[in-house]
Design a protein around this nucleic acid. Sequence first.
DNA 1: GAGGCTAAGTTCGTTTGTCAAACTCAAATA
DNA 2: TATTTGAGTTTGACAAACGAACTTAGCCTC
Lengths: 168, 168
Amino acid sequence: MSNSNNSLIEPKNTPVPLDKCGMALAAQHLMEKWNMLIIREAFYGVARFEDILEDLQIPRSVLTTRLKQLVALGILDRTPYQPEGSRTRNGYVLTKKGWDLGLTILALMQWGDTHLNGGESQISVVDKRNGDPLRVGLVPMDQNGPSLTDLEIVFKHPNKKGVPNGTP
Amino acid sequence: MSNSNNSLIEPKNTPVPLDKCGMALAAQHLMEKWNMLIIREAFYGVARFEDILEDLQIPRSVLTTRLKQLVALGILDRTPYQPEGSRTRNGYVLTKKGWDLGLTILALMQWGDTHLNGGESQISVVDKRNGDPLRVGLVPMDQNGPSLTDLEIVFKHPNKKGVPNGTP
DNA sequence: GAGGCTAAGTTCGTTTGTCAAACTCAAATA
DNA sequence: TATTTGAGTTTGACAAACGAACTTAGCCTC
């Protein structure tokens, strides 16, 4: 006797047109394959082309395209640097706009760890001012809790090369 | 004199392997084209195949595939219903796991409204218990603020067909 | 009960995107 | 001059997205 939930399933369209919805606009740009993973790399401070390539196992040509896209969007900055004994290279670091995606990244991470990773998480997020562990949640608009700039990421199983990155 | 930020751009790889990172696992599934937009529809209570089709202007064949995918992932439930004067149809509604993406959706929305929509947002999120406007932010782990089940979405420019949806 | 209608889904040929591998380029080094 | 190395481009095979047309199942009208 297939329980037909007529009450919940009514004819209905989106109350917010796609071209006025921040979520839809963001999705359009960010939800393309690889983009969020590249942003994740930047979030962790991985800035070099070859390092991103190695971490993500993404085709070179695609990475080139995506980096251009993200720079054009103002999420990444192309920053020249010069390793000793080499000519100048380009690195990719988050802009302010890019850093603002921190909450989204952490929200995704929280969800993924809970629902796809058996509740395990590899990092904790703490308030660098007092060491309080933090999570992403709903807060009353008038109440100002910790902000992204107060945030420090602690790796539970640190590896050799991994150095915690600073906020911009 | 191209300011070469050698300090920031060091050789470095991800401190968290992709297959152990909730964010990477989530991205793998959710960041496929259309998926977040389909979840957005579900979040707004748009549950019918034809309605989603109309809102998103997505190819029918792709929508079929994606809905199957999201059902298989446990994010959507395929729920039969029967409109009067028609045979039973299938509707798609968020599971608990799907609803838990609410924070991610709202974080994305916040970012998109701020950075791609000129600071305008079409909805506000309020605590249904007391009407307090809410935002997504960082909260100390031990402090329990409003949860997703307390959340109500208020449309600033309501349209005729749009009816606010309840939590599951 | 023949024919039409509609929501949901499938099929099909074209276009676009992804991919891996090979190639290019420029500066630093040997 | 030849070699190396990080960054990027090119190429051709393959997969996915696309839009349009087609199918299906039940309800309706006549």
